[in-house]
Nucleic acid binder design. Sequence first.
DNA 1: ACGTAAAAGATACACCATATCGTTTCAGCT
DNA 2: AGCTGAAACGATATGGTGTATCTTTTACGT
Lengths: 153, 153
Amino acid sequence: MLDYEKAISVAEQKCADRGIRFTRRRKQVLTVLIKADAALSAYEIAELCDAEDDSKMPAMSVYRILELLQDGNLIHRLELANKYVSCAHISCSHKHKQSQFLICDSCRHVEEIDLSSEAVDALQVAASAAGFNSISSQLEIKGWCAQCQPSSN
Amino acid sequence: MLDYEKAISVAEQKCADRGIRFTRRRKQVLTVLIKADAALSAYEIAELCDAEDDSKMPAMSVYRILELLQDGNLIHRLELANKYVSCAHISCSHKHKQSQFLICDSCRHVEEIDLSSEAVDALQVAASAAGFNSISSQLEIKGWCAQCQPSSN
DNA sequence: ACGTAAAAGATACACCATATCGTTTCAGCT
DNA sequence: AGCTGAAACGATATGGTGTATCTTTTACGT
């Protein structure tokens, strides 16, 4: 898990830079995502927020906040899993233009990885050959983590 | 688009081999998917079936039939798009253990491609390094086709 | 204190998908 | 030809994910 205090202060700074507030609700959502150290659905996030205190986090608010946090590159949305994860690089200086994820099809564990530029290039070459000028900067690959054996695909 | 007549006869044969029927409903769904030459949602398929004749194709039946066709390797389910496409290799002898797709994020056009084994290996190596023993035999990559320019990602 | 804009709340709804159970159809048998 | 059981289909309900829209609250500068 990444450094929580550092991540929150980075988030505060990023919001300040954007001229928006880092409100209690926004902090709640980001906190839940960081502390979970796993991919969560919007509704799971809402439930975990509710568990923190006795207020009621509406699912709508979660979606709005997730979008805002994503725009600030603080979190990522995994389209293959319909889940959200905190960015692995919030609290380090690492600037990644690309995001690549491995998603365990069994236990849903997620690893944010850095593909070699050779691998990315190979994908881009294949895409170009098939008439695709460019590929997304986010790549999601399903697989099976060390703890989980593949059953079928 | 692939050879429709050939594809249907292959489908008939495959169903016969599995000891199941190639019914009117099943033929309708496969026909729609082949003729559309594009990725369709289950509900879009139902609508297009309705447009063919004046019967009412229930969404439930579409899902059941899609699952059956997928088990027969006649179609693919695109998890990134929540859509379905006919397999590009129904009517040829090509046996592909793996499936790779490019999905245009703008117009939703889909290309089924064959990645070089080097590219696949590079992905597997990266996965292994991150603690993933194996990756899925189906890879889906979003991008932008020749007709569509990337706006954002 | 007050006005304004951002943020949050509330409700409704669209879309994708599955569960369950009742009904129809059809191949194979007598 | 009629019977029968399994396969196929139909119908309804429900769950998960996400968006649209409108109202209310909150925070901040003046």
